[in-house]
Nucleic acid binder design. Structure first.
Lengths: 131, 131
DNA sequence: GCTTGACCTAGAGTCGGCTCTAGATTCTAC
DNA sequence: GTAGAATCTAGAGCCGACTCTAGGTCAAGC
C-alpha cells in the first residue's frame, strides 16, 4: 500500500487521468510524481492532498497560471511565505467578490422565479409585484 | 432621445461593441435590435434591461446556449411560462450549489491565509493549528 | 470636399482548460 | 503465454466565449 496509480487518483479526486497528466505538465504539483519501474506514476497521499487544494482553487475560479505560481512558491521552499500569503489573499478577495455577485444574481433569479410562480398560480400569496 | 447607439449601450452595460453584436448573432435578444436609416443599431431601454438580465445570468455561470433557450421562450410569447420557470429554477439550483462550493473553497483559503499570517507573526493570537 | 470616427458584415483568431488520439509498453488474470 | 486493461508520451483537437480584422458605409465638423 505504498502509493496510488493514476487511475486510482482519478477515481479519488474526480479528475480524469488526462487531466492529472495535464496538471502535472502544467506544473501544478510541487514535486514531480514518483515513478515506478515501468515509468508509471505513483502518487502518495501528499500528492492527493495537494490536488485537493488545486481542485478547490480551480473551483473557486483561480486560473491555472495562478495555481502554478503558487505551486512554484511552495516548491521553492521556505522564505517566500509573504508572497504565498499575498496570492491567497488576493484570491480570497476575488472569491468574496464573486460571492457578492452571485448573491445579486440569485436575487434576480429568485425574483423572476417568484414572478413566474405567481403568474402560473403556483403561489397562494402573491407578493406585491407587477403582474 | 429615441434610442441608444451600440457604443452608448456598450458604455452602459460594460460589454464591448463586439460582444453586443456577438450576443445578438447568438440570439440572446428576444427581438432583433431596431435599425436606423444607415443600418445602425438603435437600442431602446427594453433592450438594455434585457442585456442586464443576460449579464447577470452569464455572471452566475449560465452558458450562452441556456440563455438563448430562455430568450427563445420569451420570444415565443405567452404560454410557455412553465418552461421558463423550469429553466430559471434549474439555474437557481446551480447557483446555490456554486455558492455552497465557493463557501467551502473560501474556508480552505481563509484557513491557509490564517496559517501563513501566524507563521509570519502577523497575528497576535495564533489559532490552534499545526505550526 | 475631406478627414475622422462610429458604425456595418463576415469571418478569422485567441485563450483557457481540458480532452482525445496514436502508437508503444506494461501489468493482471487466466 | 496470452488477452485485455492500464499506463506511457507527444501532440492534436475541441469547446465556450469572446475578440479582432478587413474592407466598406455614413454623418459631422472643419
Amino acid at each position: 500500500m505504498s502509493g496510488l496509480s493514476i487511475g486510482q487518483v482519478a477515481e479519488r479526486t474526480g479528475l480524469s487521468v488526462h487531466t492529472l497528466r495535464f496538471y502535472e505538465r502544467e506544473g501544478l504539483l510541487p514535486q514531480p510524481v514518483r515513478r515506478g519501474a515501468a515509468g508509471h506514476r505513483i502518487y502518495d497521499e501528499g500528492d492527493v492532498d495537494w490536488l485537493g487544494v488545486c481542485i478547490r482553487l480551480r473551483a473557486s475560479g483561480m486560473p491555472l497560471t495562478d495555481i502554478r505560481r503558487y505551486t512554484e512558491l511552495v516548491r521553492a521552499g521556505q522564505g517566500n511565505e509573504a508572497e504565498r500569503l499575498e496570492v491567497l489573499r488576493e484570491h480570497r478577495e476575488r472569491v468574496l467578490a464573486q460571492m457578492r455577485e452571485l448573491d445579486e444574481c440569485l436575487s434576480l433569479i429568485t425574483h423572476k422565479v417568484a414572478l413566474y410562480e405567481s403568474r402560473l398560480g403556483l403561489r397562494d400569496h402573491v407578493p406585491d409585484c407587477t403582474p
